[in-house]
Each structure stands twice: as structure tokens, then as C-alpha cells.
Nucleic acid binder design. Structure first.
Length: 571
RNA sequence: GGGCUCGUAGCUCAGUGGAUAGAGCGCCGGACUACGAAUCCGUAGGUCGCAGGUUCAAAUCCUGCCGGGCCCA
């Protein structure tokens, strides 16, 4: 951020002096190859036409302008078709260390969001059964996005929409009721069309135990009892699974409450008043063709039953009435056909563009190279709880957040569980632990120990090697990475950055011995490395992954023998 | 049949207008009498699905086709 902003400022001044505008498509970024300098700008190629000069000539002229006015730059070169390649002086990079140390855990924070009120809604699985691994991906993504947005100055609230009304819920109540009667020895119809998981049986047994007279109640009353108990228990399980995955929602919003509070009718009235809803053939329709849909959609069937679409519109209406300026929904990719329609509805509500939908692709779970069934209860490792117990929350989260959400993901249980380079989470955590191990060792050195130096000229003198500066450059990029990841809603950019930073650290560690280098050099290097550790910790925090100071203290170390047992006990 | 989405190294994936397309794994070969070898260094490996188009510049944008996944009918 610092370098980019700095370069943009001086380039703007140079362009202004020549009467040239700042081009829309200007890019300032570190070039792919080291030999092209620290940062590279493409303005000369974009403005060649406007300046009536050849790109390279304009670049040469700008290079002269910059070299003439600035002392923070060590070198300005023109290369290729007209790139302006800039190398900063070492003192510029050293200054980053003071920034990191001053900011600590807050390093990388910004006010880009200016307090914008944002809601992130994620998981929102129907409370009809336990969460599966696919929900885990959405959970990790939503939680990490919330962290990213908070870090960049947004006012974020996380929400889980509980679909506790509608058809699926009636089926759930019936499923428990029928199972209860079956357990009581009654003849019941075939259970083919109902939820049949073992958990249904457990709930049925418990309801019967706690309500011994239930079989004598009027059926509607009994089913309601079953339904309420089922939703309570399943939701409690979902909350626990999410908590174990270190995911927490601020608000659990009930669909039922939406219906009962009359929000649906309010929304209908609102749409009708603006001629966006109309009655036809006994049904109520939304005029979605006005927003690019290929046909109008039903809100209330002639039978009086509401569609999902109806309550979803009312729900989003409610979100905006609660003051959110921007709403981010995370959905499974199987709902992709619904995105345009929902966005049309939001437009109809007068909030065009305020809804962003992120689709999360399916996760295919591999065990021993074989795909494990996901949609039925057949497989052993299909629930989120099982997977987290087996591989640990850190490893699962890091993997989910290492891939862009719109590509399908292969989740190999054995690979993710392994503590080696096949598993990048350990690579990054190890870098952090390695630094803390050094800091501990340093404190134990004879003569009162060696502490990290204070930022300042004395320390910087010992940090002028190429590898020292390379680490400083990496640290400088972090705020940019955070800002871009938040902008693109793409936490995987953070995890890729962390892998690179960890790699730079490991290389540095191998090449430069710290503790035996003499007290002054050692303490200067410790300053540098403690800044790396702080940045690694700040980055891992954005992913919700722990930053252990010792690897044997990683927050969710998974024991070889215990894993199988944990699996049965916890889930 | 219509739509969405993906297609990059043997594998898993980054890279969404810039320079000679990258990383990890896997293969092969090296590095512990020092801070954790859960590490590091090196070699090999790619018509960026195919064909056109836009641009000074295309893996990236546009069109068509082929292939995988999904949704709808």
C-alpha cells in the first residue's frame, strides 16, 4: 500500500505537469521478475496516444521526471514496450519494519470500507440434518470474508437464515412422528419419502421418552411437538459443529418469524403498489420479466402456499430495512440458476447491485483416492463434524480457503491430515513457530538474552542484504493483498500470499544464521523476523487459522490413535 | 433443448489486459558437528481445450465449437 500509493502520488504529479490525465486502467504492481525492479507502472503505454509520443519515449521522459524529484527511489528504468520500472532505496523498505511493529496484530488494517454496513449470510442449511463437508466450505468462506471485510473497515454482521417454515419442515415433522410411531410398534406407511437418517430415530426416541403420552394426542399436536423438538436438536447440532469449526454467526434469523410477523404480506403489498406483482389464474406473480428473467415467477400458488422465492424476497426486503447497504449471500453452486432471479428481485426492491452472491462449488471428498459418497448417509466421513475431527479445523479451513470458491474442490482426507509439505497449512504455521522458537532461544542466551532491536538506523544497518530487503518487500505487500482480497471477496489470495511469505522465511532461515551472528546482527535480524511472525499471524487470523508458537501446540492437533475414537464420540 | 460454470505441467491448483505463463506435490540429484530437516537448493516437465476476432499487448476480453460439472425444461 505504502509503495504503491507513494509511486502513484509522484507519478500523478509528473503526469499533471505534462497536462496528462491519470489513466483508468493504470496498474502499479510488483513485476513478475525481480530484475524489473520493485514496482512497475504501465501508464506510459496507456497514455502514448494522448501524449502523441511513442510509449518508450514517454516512459523515458517520465523516468527523468521521477528521478529528478525524488530521493526514495534508487532507480527508475524503462523496459520492454514502455514499462516504468522503479527500485526503491533500502531505507524505504526498512521503514516497513517500524510500521509492522507499531501495528502489531492490526497490520494490514485499513478504512477502505468507511464503516459500510455489510451483511454476510452463509451456511443457512435447512435444519433437516447435520452439516456436510460442502457446508464447511461455505462456512470457512463466509467467516473469512467477514474477517477480511472487518479488517478493511466494514461494519459486518454474519447471519444464518433458518428455513424453519415450508414444505421441507413439514416433512421433517412427519418423519420424526412416523419414526416415533414405528418405534412404538405401530404400523406406519413406507418411509421412502421422508428423512430416514439415524439422527431422526434418536430424536423420535427422545421425544417419546420426554412425552410419554404423545401417542394419545391429536395428531397435528403430536407432529408439531416432533417438529419443534427436531428443529431444536438439529439446530443445536449445527451450532456445535460450526463452533468446533470456529465459525460463529451474530444472528440466527428464522423464516417462521418472518412469516408470523407479516413481512411476506408487507412485501407483497409493496410490490403490488409498484405494479411488480399481479394476480392471475388465482396465483400471485412477480413480474420478473421486467428484470431480465425469461418468465414471470409465482409468489403464492393458487393453493395459497407460498413459494421459496416469496419468502426469499421478503427476507431480503427485511435485510435492507435493517439498514444493510450491502448484502453478500453465499450459496451452493446448485442454486446458480436462482442468482439472476434473486438479483432481479433485489432490483425490484430498489436496491440494484446491493446483493452479491458468491457460489461455492461442490466439494468431492476423497479417501484413499476413492470418492466418498456425500449426499446419502452411506459414507462414514461425510459430515463436517467427522471431517473436522479427523483432519482438524486448521487444515480443513486452510484448504477450503486456498482455492477460489467457483472451482470444484478435491478434498483428500489423507492428504489434508498429513503433516508435511503436501499440506500447506503446516508449512505456514511452521514458519511462524520457527520464528517464535528462535525468539525463545534468543531470550535464553547468556548475558540476559538477546531481544529484537528497536526499529531504527542502528538495526537497519545490519539488514541491508538482498534477503533482508526481500522479506521487507514481502511484508510491504501485505496491506495490498488484504485490500485486494477484500475487494475481490477472495480469501484465497491471502492464503497464497502466506505460503509465499513462509517460503521466503524458510529460505532466509536456511541461509542466515541468527543467534550466532553476534549480538547486534542477531537482534537486528530478530526485529525483521518478529515482523514476519506478526504478519503471518495477522494473515492466518484472516483465515481463522491458528498461529501456534510451537507446532506441538497447534490448536487442533490431531492424534493418530485418537482420531477414530473422536469420530464416534463427538459426532 | 435452454442457461450457468469450469477447462493452465503427470497430479492438485495460482495467475482476469502486460515483459521469457508460476507454485506445491510427484520424479531425479544434492544440503544437518549451529537457532526445529514439518526445512532448504538444483534438474526435468506446458500447442494455457480448439478455431477465429478485438488490442501496441490475450491464459485473461468477444464469438463459435469441443469436453467435464450443475440448474431448468
Amino acid at each position: 500500500m505504502k509503495a504503491k500509493q507513494y509511486l502513484e502520488d509522484i507519478l500523478r504529479r509528473a503526469l499533471e505537469a505534462r497536462g496528462l490525465p491519470w489513466p483508468e486502467k493504470a496498474v502499479i504492481e510488483p513485476p513478475r521478475e525481480r530484475k524489473f525492479g520493485d514496482y512497475s507502472a504501465n501508464v506510459a503505454m496507456l497514455l502514448a496516444g494522448a501524449a502523441k509520443m511513442k510509449p518508450r519515449d514517454l516512459a523515458e521522459a517520465l523516468a527523468a521526471d521521477l528521478a529528478g524529484q525524488d530521493t526514495q527511489l534508487a532507480k527508475v528504468e524503462v523496459a520492454g514496450p514502455g514499462f516504468l520500472n522503479v527500485t526503491f532505496a533500502p531505507s524505504f523498505w526498512h521503514g516497513i519494519l517500524a510500521d509492522v511493529q507499531a501495528a502489531g496484530a492490526a497490520y494490514g488494517a485499513s478504512d477502505l470500507g468507511r464503516g459500510q454496513k455489510v451483511q454476510v449470510e452463509y451456511v443457512s442449511a435447512n435444519p433437516t440434518g447435520p452439516l456436510h463437508i460442502g457446508h464447511g466450505r461455505g462456512a470457512a468462506l463466509g467467516d473469512s470474508l467477514a474477517r477480511l471485510l472487518r479488517k478493511t473497515g466494514h461494519n459486518v454482521e454474519c447471519e444464518y437464515y433458518v428455513n424453519d417454515a415450508g414444505r421441507q419442515m413439514r416433512i421433517l415433522g412427519d418423519s420424526v412422528w412416523l419414526r416415533l410411531r414405528q418405534l412404538a410398534g405401530q404400523d406406519v406407511p413406507d418411509l421412502e419419502d421422508f428423512y430416514r437418517g439415524d439422527y431422526i430415530k434418536d430424536i423420535a426416541a427422545r421425544v417419546h421418552r420426554e412425552n410419554p403420552g404423545i401417542l394419545d394426542l391429536p395428531e397435528a399436536e403430536a407432529i408439531d411437538l416432533c417438529f419443534v423438538a427436531a428443529v431444536d436438536e438439529i439446530l443445536a447440532g449445527i451450532k456445535k459443529d460450526l463452533a468446533d469449526f470456529r465459525v460463529g454467526h451474530d444472528v440466527w434469523f428464522s423464516e417462521k418469524s418472518l412469516v408470523e410477523a407479516g413481512r411476506i404480506d408487507e412485501t407483497f403489498a409493496d410490490l403490488k403498489a409498484r405494479d411488480l406483482a399481479f394476480e392471475q389464474d388465482g396465483a400471485l406473480w412477480f413480474r420478473s420479466t421486467a428484470f431480465g428473467d425469461d418468465k414471470d415467477r409465482v409468489l403464492r400458488k393458487s393453493s395459497g402456499e407460498l413459494t421459496y422465492f416469496a419468502s426469499d424476497i421478503a427476507y431480503h426486503h427485511d435485510k435492507f430495512k435493517r439498514g444493510f447497504e450491502r448484502v453478500i449471500d453465499i450459496w451452493g453452486a446448485d442454486h446458480h440458476g436462482y442468482v439472476a432471479r434473486m438479483q432481479g428481485a433485489v432490483e425490484a426492491l430498489g436496491r440494484k447491485g446491493a446483493l452479491q452472491v458468491i457460489l461455492v462449488q461442490l466439494v468431492s471428498l476423497l479417501k484413499d483416492g476413492e470418492q466418498v459418497a456425500m449426499s446419502t448417509r452411506a459414507g462414514k466421513f461425510e459430515t463436517l463434524c467427522d471431517v473436522v475431527a479427523y483432519v482438524g479445523a486448521d487444515a480443513a479451513r486452510f484448504l477450503f480457503l486456498s482455492r477460489k470458491s467457483d472451482s470444484q474442490l478435491e478434498f483428500d482426507l489423507e492428504l489434508v491430515r498429513r503433516k508435511s509439505m503436501d499440506n500447506p497449512v503446516f508449512y505456514v504455521q511452521y514458519a511462524h513457530a520457527r520464528i517464535h522458537s528462535m525468539l525463545r532461544k534468543a531470550a535464553e542466551q547468556a548475558g540476559g538474552g538477546i531481544a529484537p532491536a528497536a526499529p531504527g538506523a542502528t538495526a537497519y544497518e545490519h539488514l541491508s542484504g538482498e534477503d533482508d530487503l526481500e522479506l521487507c518487500r514481502m511484508l510491504e505487500r501485505f496491506p495490498d493483498v488484504v485490500a485486494q482480497a477484500a475487494e475481490a471477496l477472495a480469501p484465497h489470495q491471502v492464503s497464497h500470499y502466506l505460503s509465499e511469505l513462509a517460503s521466503a522465511l524458510h529460505r532466509y532461515y536456511t541461509r542466515h544464521h541468527v543467534l550466532s551472528a553476534g549480538p547486534e546482527i542477531a537482534s537486528a535480524r530478530l526485529l525483521l523476523l518478529s515482523c514476519v511472525a506478526a504478519t503471518l499471524a495477522a494473515g492466518l487470523d484472516l483465515l481463522g487459522v491458528s498461529a501456534p508458537e510451537r507446532m506441538d501446540q497447534a490448536s487442533d492437533q490431531v492424534e493418530g490413535q485418537a482420531a477414530g475414537a473422536a469420530d464416534d464420540a463427538a459426532c
